[in-house]
């Protein structure tokens, strides 16, 4: 039975499941590195998902759906940026407001645009896998190719995009002017201010980047996984992403790898549900798995992970 579970598509599925978490987690990384907590990722992702579905349904183009999701994510994150940076609100409270707002706005627009709550029609043009290679045949070589093909070459565009984002963000954070300044902002914003770095602007940019990535995560859910929008479909992924960011020690590649762990748990629980007949465990327990894993990971890692020193603290000039 183990052979039936540990198949190439389990790992491929782990990569797919990890993608929205990873995008949001990297968003969280950039945002927290600049000194702003982003509890709002859940809501940003949800609104991104809705925008992807709505634009996809309206235009028939998956790519326009993705663009709309990014735009919506940026727009929502701007609210968080304004309230956290300019109004100096409590960042966790502001994020919570956005999460509630996202539930309200998406539900409201569902009824306004489609006349019913619940789930939208299927988006006609989903984003398709980039490559189309046949699987290998018999024999060792064939098997190896089948594994490689499903794990590496079976994916949709945003899955690859997420990997690229992780690598580029990591490089940029440690090699570029922007990255050095970002790291300074979250640790000691006043030090950054005294050498002429604009703290508000730096934080605004980071928050909006996290909005773009959160929107992209939502687009992935709708356009590459589910195929339609359902109310509250993010189901806590924004919070799991934050845990992944912590587990990844506030680095983009770390966030991606941590998301892979959660993605694998998700893929595994889906796979195991197929074997319900053989393993007599109710499906709800499988569904709990990612959430339990999140708590376990946080319990195991936190003491040793050090967050940016100034995260969550509004910057006061002068």
């Amino acid at each position: 039975m183990l052979g039936d579970i540990l198949t190439p598509d389990l790992f491929a599925s782990a990569l797919r499941m990890a993608t929205p978490l990873a995008l949001a987690a990297i968003g969280g990384t950039l945002c927290e590195r600049s000194g702003v907590v982003n509890i709002a990722l859940e809501g940003i992702m949800l609104i991104g998902a809705f925008a992807a579905a709505a634009a996809g349904l309206a235009t028939g183009s998956g790519w326009l759906g993705l663009l709309a999701a990014i735009a919506a994510g940026v727009a929502v994150s701007a609210i968080h940026a304004f309230s956290s940076i300019n109004l100096k609100s409590d960042q966790v409270v502001s994020g919570t407001a956005i999460n509630i707002l996202a539930l309200g706005v998406t539900g409201f627009l569902m009824e306004l645009l489609y006349g019913h709550p619940g789930t939208t029609d299927p988006v006609p043009q989903m984003l398709r896998p980039v490559f189309h290679f046949p699987n290998g045949g018999e024999g060792v070589l064939g098997t190896v190719w089948t594994w490689i093909n499903s794990i590496v070459f079976s994916h949709t565009p945003i899955v690859y995009l997420a990997i690229a984002v992780a690598v580029i963000a990591q490089w940029a954070m440690y090699r570029t002017r922007w990255g050095l300044r970002l790291r300074a902002l979250g640790e000691h914003p006043r030090a950054a201010d005294t050498v002429g770095i604009n703290v508000s602007r730096g934080r605004w940019i980071a928050v909006m980047m996290s909005g773009a990535l959160g929107g992209m995560a939502g687009a992935n859910l709708v356009l590459e996984q589910v195929g339609s929008f359902t109310e509250n479909m993010t189901n806590g992924r924004g919070f799991i992403a934050l845990a992944a960011n912590i587990f990844g020690r506030w680095t983009p590649v770390g966030s991606y790898l941590a998301s892979l762990l959660f993605g694998f748990a998700d893929a595994l629980q889906i796979k195991l549900q197929l074997f319900r007949a053989e393993i007599d465990i109710p499906p709800q327990f499988f569904l709990m798995l990612p959430y339990v894993l999140t708590v376990v990971v946080l319990a195991g890692v936190i003491g040793r992970a050090v967050s940016p020193a100034a995260v969550g603290v509004p910057y006061e000039k002068g």
């Binding site: 790291r183 640790e187 000691h188 030090a191 950054a192 050498v195």
Partner: peptide, 8 residues
Amino acid sequence: HFMLVQPL
């Protein structure tokens, strides 16, 4: 109070 970023 020094304006230095500790981990850098």
